[in-house]
Write a protein that binds this DNA or RNA. Structure first.
Length: 366
DNA sequence: TAAGCGTGGCA
DNA sequence: TTGCCAAGCTT
């Protein structure tokens, strides 16, 4: 059966009307809420975003409140979501919107000028908040179209992406951009999934070329696969007079502006205990001794797989005061202070372990 | 154009 | 356990 555009649109929109998940930003499609949700959803799955979205909106209910937020308050609300530049850019956008009178532009071209708003987010906000006729192209749409149209080249290749963007625009029913785009992404998330797609329940099963050919599992064609680099890291919980040393990371690079415990990479042939003493000296000029193993935490970030060795360290009595070489600010903090500050996920896990360590808690009292 | 930028879930 | 994956943007 030939591809029928009207049928494709009708079945997709009917399916979405019946199957759309109840999400907080789908209540009224208020532009601020749509923008926050779309930025949170960059490279992040729906289920993970929803609780962050609720907390974020409670703290920062509008552009004005977000524009006025402090750095720790902002990053703390984002802690655990990753890609923290998103939070900073979202605040920059809020400030630009406030400066421009308080309203978000409605056209994709103007939205695209805002910090942290790329081609996807500009089209998504224009379509979902303002129902402008823009077609989004995200990983879900790429996957759906690569199957429906049987695309036999890697979908991440720029030329293929341009082609898929044009196809998405062709499929878009004029005047229905809000529902159409969400329907394509929702279908990708719930039915046309990367693994174990539910083709028997798919509203587009009659329109799907890859399904007809029996090669759904060969679509989309993957691109170059990323290699993960194992990394051994040692970090120190440096305690003095009931307080722990923490430092704020530099404004550029990974975990920019977040707080952390000092430490760094364990060199080949070096023990984690020796590395933590060396790294703390290099980063802070603090002299510490007798590192005592606290925890071993495994986590990953971007393309690294990290084995994080954590030690409790004492400052030697004749140690000089801290001088920072890998951070912009430091603090001797009480355990209870750490909750209002943003830490990388691995260090947050360490804080959780610290709270379970009775002897450490006794050391931190008072 | 390619690499940097997080994180947790899942098979 | 390990590899793969997710509603991308910036430089």
């Amino acid at each position: 059966m030939p591809f029928d555009l009207a049928r494709f649109r009708e079945r997709l929109l009917d399916w979405f009307a019946a199957s759309a998940r109840d999400l907080p930003w789908r209540r009224d499609y208020a532009p601020y809420r749509v923008l926050v949700s779309e930025v949170m959803l960059q490279q992040t799955q729906m289920e993970r975003v929803v609780p962050y979205f609720e907390r974020f909106l409670a703290r920062f209910p509008d552009f004005d409140r977000l524009a006025a937020a402090g750095e720790d308050e902002l990053l703390s609300a984002w802690e655990g979501l990753g890609y923290y530049a998103r939070a900073r850019n979202l605040q920059k956008t809020a400030r630009a919107v406030v400066a421009a009178g308080g309203r978000l532009p409605e056209e994709a071209g103007a939205l695209r000028e805002l910090p942290g708003v790329g081609p996807y987010t500009a089209a998504a906000v224009a379509a979902i908040a303002f129902n402008r006729d823009e077609a989004v192209l995200d990983a879900n749409v790429e996957r759906v179209l690569s199957r429906v149209l049987d695309v036999d080249e890697p979908v991440k290749a720029p030329a293929v992406r341009r082609q898929l963007a044009a196809e998405a625009a062709r499929l878009l029913p004029p005047g229905r951009a809000r529902d159409f785009n969400q329907a394509m992404m929702e279908l990708g998330a719930l039915v046309c999934t990367a693994r174990s797609p539910r083709c028997a329940n798919c509203p587009l099963r009659e329109d799907c070329e890859a399904l007809h050919l029996g090669i759904v599992n060969e679509r989309p064609v993957p691109g170059k696969r990323v290699t993960f680099t194992p990394l051994v890291v040692a970090s120190g919980v440096v305690v003095r007079a009931g307080r722990v040393f923490i430092q704020r990371r530099l404004p550029q690079g990974v975990w920019a502006g977040l707080w952390e415990f000092p430490g760094g990479r364990v060199e080949p042939g070096e023990s984690p205990a020796a590395a933590v003493v060396r790294e703390i000296g290099e980063e802070t000029e603090l002299a510490v001794a007798a590192p005592e193993h606290l925890a071993l935490i495994r986590h990953g970030y971007t393309t690294y797989r990290v084995e994080l060795h954590c030690f409790l360290c004492a400052v030697v009595p004749e140690s000089p005061p801290p001088v920072l070489h890998a951070a912009q600010e430091y603090r001797w903090a009480r355990l209870s202070e750490l909750d209002g500050l943003a830490f990388p996920a691995g260090h947050r896990k360490l804080i959780d372990r610290m709270r379970q360590d009775i002897r450490l808690c006794e050391l931190m009292e008072g």
